[in-house]
Amino acid sequence: MEVVDPQQLGMFTEGELMSVGMDTFIHRIDSTEVIYQPRRKRAKLIGKYLMGDLLGEGSYGKVKEVLDSETLCRRAVKILKKKKLRRIPNGEANVKKEIQLLRRLRHKNVIQLVDVLYNEEKQKMYMVMEYCVCGMQEMLDSVPEKRFPVCQAHGYFCQLIDGLEYLHSQGIVHKDIKPGNLLLTTGGTLKISDLGVAEALHPFAADDTCRTSQGSPAFQPPEIANGLDTFSGFKVDIWSAGVTLYNITTGLYPFEGDNIYKLFENIGKGSYAIPGDCGPPLSDLLKGMLEYEPAKRFSIRQIRQHSWFRKKHPPAEAPVPIPPSPDTKDRWRSMTVVPYLEDLHGADEDEDLFDIEDDIIYTQDFTVPGQVPEEEASHNGQRRGLPKAVCMNGTEAAQLSTKSRAEGRAPNPARKACSASSKIRRLSACKQQ
């Protein structure tokens, strides 16, 4: 084909351009004929944790799935940006308080904090938690009735009371019990989460009196709706648990309003109706937990002794299953770290194939690490110290990083047969305790 000078094309009309061969290198194709290559998922490591896909996002930050490269346990990490926390009232204080509380709590029905990582340079905090497959609110939203069968609701409620009793025994008032803060594992274990607005009572406090509340409006008791200066913290949790039980068994809320002012007005009056299909035992329990006067409201001991709580409820309806993943529609909620794991395991070791967030990740503290002497050669063979940054567990980050890069360049065919977990650990520049 004859090559045409581009400067001469402006002298031709459209018809003349076609005659000189423009149609031979300008093609129009339908979008259905285009085959897009999927974007390669680059592996990203935060300390010893391999990052997966997004699980959810809230006002405080994002939650992603991660894999512990040492234990191969599935975890969830809450990623918090200090810049964003400053824009939220009491944001930083709530996060630090939640970390302090979770560090000393150990119960099967309370979410466990596994690790805390802090990135000084990017001003990011990573709260590594045990993995929960789904939230209770997500399960309720997945069915038209917006409720659980009585047998399933009873099982979840009993676990909620177990976890709540443990928190109260530790002198902690949750203040925000609701389905949105109750998570579930694949085995059906309920976990109380989000202790950001919780309050730890003084060890020598005479009672459970509280003065502040930041919980969700629909789950607040009349004493808070009416603006009382002080109130019983434990009875606030009992009320919120009662509203939660009402919601998961009926699909409704005892109090509603077009806006928060109308909602608080209705809560302050204390008038509500219980659907007739709840039955006398459940209705009596709800009335005891939603008692207007805090002094007359049920205690956890009274809830445990109630006939509806103690009764064994046979399954009359099919239980609400864990819904498919909202993004991938995966009904099994498979591990989202698998594509990243395959990338590390299947590809040659190259620095361009993975990302390490930083050479140094500070753990379990908000301060910069200490310094240790770096050896410097002298005339008599002895070495003197220069400062060298280290990880919180004493690992020399720069030395590990250099060693990792040197190993990656060394030709050794046997290394390709290593397991995925050992490869992740070798790529991680800074081991965590």
Rank of each mutant, 00 (worst) to 15 (best):
E256Q: 12
Q399S: 05
A318Y: 15
M22T: 15
R384V: 09
E407F: 09
G381K: 14
A241T: 00
K423Q: 03
P369F: 09
K262S: 06
E376W: 04
N94L: 05
A377R: 15
L105S: 10
P413N: 15
A153V: 02
G10W: 10
Y36F: 02
Q302A: 12
L17P: 15
L164S: 01
M125V: 04
E98K: 07
E70P: 00
K64T: 06
S232E: 10
K97D: 09
N94D: 10
T185W: 02
M392L: 14
A417N: 13
G257I: 15
G58L: 00
P319Y: 12
Y60S: 12
A397C: 06
V95W: 02
R40H: 07
K423A: 03
P281V: 08
E33I: 03
G227D: 07
M18W: 04
H345W: 14
Y156L: 10
E349R: 11
L184G: 01
R39I: 07
G61Y: 01
G251T: 08
S193T: 09
E57Y: 05
F366G: 13
M129V: 01
I29R: 07
A76R: 00
E121G: 08
H345G: 12
D237N: 10
H345T: 14
P314Q: 08
F309S: 02
S271M: 12
E138Y: 07
P6G: 02
G171N: 15
G233Q: 15
S232G: 05
E342D: 04
S428N: 04
T395P: 10
Y246V: 05
Q399A: 07
P275T: 04
T402D: 08
Q364C: 09
L341F: 03
D194H: 00
A273C: 03
G135A: 14
D53V: 03
V337C: 07
V66H: 11
Q214P: 03
A218N: 10
Y253F: 03
P89W: 06
K82F: 05
I424T: 12
C418T: 14
G196V: 07
R28P: 02
P281W: 02
L286T: 07
G270N: 11
D194S: 00
V143G: 10
G385V: 02
T186V: 09
D327W: 14
S142W: 02
F255I: 10
K312Q: 14
P326V: 04
L102D: 02
L113W: 01
V143W: 03
F354V: 10
L182R: 01
A295N: 09
A318L: 14
G268Y: 10
V338W: 03
L341N: 13
L17G: 13
H27M: 15
C134S: 12
N90G: 15
R103P: 05
S232Q: 06
I361N: 09
I111L: 02
T328E: 12
G370L: 11
R415I: 05
V197W: 09
P217Y: 12
Q302G: 07
N393E: 12
E265R: 11
K146G: 04
H379E: 03
F255G: 02
N181L: 00
D53P: 13
G268S: 14
R297T: 00
Q112S: 07
E145V: 03
G242Y: 00
V110E: 00
T212P: 05
H154Y: 09
L140W: 00
K146A: 09
M22H: 15
G188D: 11
V4I: 11
I29C: 11
R74F: 05
G52I: 15
P275R: 07
K287S: 05
S69P: 06
P326C: 10
F354Y: 10
F219P: 01
E16L: 07
